[in-house]
């Protein structure tokens, strides 16, 4: 009976970078998950029936954050291996596990990557770009991709190591304190961003007038962006119209 090798896990890891390629509104990551697990199917399934069942099981609806989906890939690999080694007659626990994994993986990934790491890395990148040029861009890519790649790799490794038990490590409640600390850091960095932009404008040809305009616009844009009643395109468009109007008034005055 075949067992999973490191090579198979590496193949799953490589494929996981393409997990969202066929993202669609009906099954979301369904086909992507199956695509990632094909090396496992090739390794474990010995009969046509086993293979067909395996494929159908993993072609169904699945959704998660794309990086955190690695945890699902690792643990599903483990469960599929166990089911073959221990000759499970009923494979429904795998499906139930998959369903249970979706929300924590989605919630954790969205909160950590989209709502914390990305804004933090982007703002630090923007601040550094103002003073050091391209160094800021490189810093942004490094700051973002270190946790990104770490989670991709560790997701497969830990998921495979822990199998069913990985669910205990993925509680949003357990990670809440880290998100709070990250939000403090982002708030602090936002303060630095405000000063960095202000400093940049103050030292431009526009001087005090530009700085005052920037500070007033920042204050005005907070409630607008907070309520989000209009799309970002409109926010940008309105910002441009107001800015140019004020610019023309300042010039004529």
């Amino acid at each position: 009976m075949n067992r999973i090798r490191k090579r198979d896990l590496l193949s799953v890891l490589f494929r996981s970078f393409y997990i969202q390629s066929s993202w669609n509104f009906e099954r979301m990551l369904g086909l992507g998950l199956c695509f990632c697990l094909i090396p496992i199917a090739k390794r474990l399934c010995t009969t046509d029936e086993e293979m067909e069942e395996f494929l159908k099981r993993h072609l169904d609806f699945f959704n998660a954050h794309p990086y955190m989906a690695s945890f699902a890939l690792g643990s599903l690999t483990r469960l599929e291996e166990q089911s073959i080694l221990n000759k499970w007659k009923d494979k429904r626990p795998i499906l139930v596990f998959k369903e249970r994994m979706m929300s924590p993986l989605g919630a954790l990934g969205d909160a950590f990557f989209w709502n914390s790491v990305k804004p933090l890395a982007a703002v630090i990148g923007v601040i550094l770009s103002l003073y050091l040029g391209i160094v800021g861009v490189i810093t942004f890519l490094v700051l973002y991709n270190v946790p990104h790649l770490y989670y991709r790799v560790m997701g497969i490794y830990l998921g495979y190591k822990k199998g069913f038990d990985i669910i205990h490590d993925l509680s949003i409640r357990g990670t809440q304190k880290y998100f709070k600390k990250l939000s403090y850091l982002i708030a602090g960095i936002t303060g630095v961003l405000l000063v960095a932009f202000g400093d940049h404008i103050f030292h431009s040809n526009y001087g005090n007038k530009g700085l005052i305009f920037f500070l007033v616009m920042s204050a005005v844009s907070i409630p607008v962006t907070f309520k989000r009643r209009i799309t970002i395109e409109f926010m940008i468009l309105i910002t441009l119209i107001i800015s140019i109007t004020i610019g023309l008034l300042v010039q004529s005055g």
Binding site: T190, F197, F214, S218, V220, V224, S243
Partner: peptide
């Protein structure tokens, strides 16, 4: 040129 500062302000407002 004020449009640049407006966009910077919108960015700060978004983050805040």
């Amino acid at each position: 040129g004020y449009a640049k500062f407006g966009l910077m302000a919108l960015g700060v407002g978004a983050m805040i």
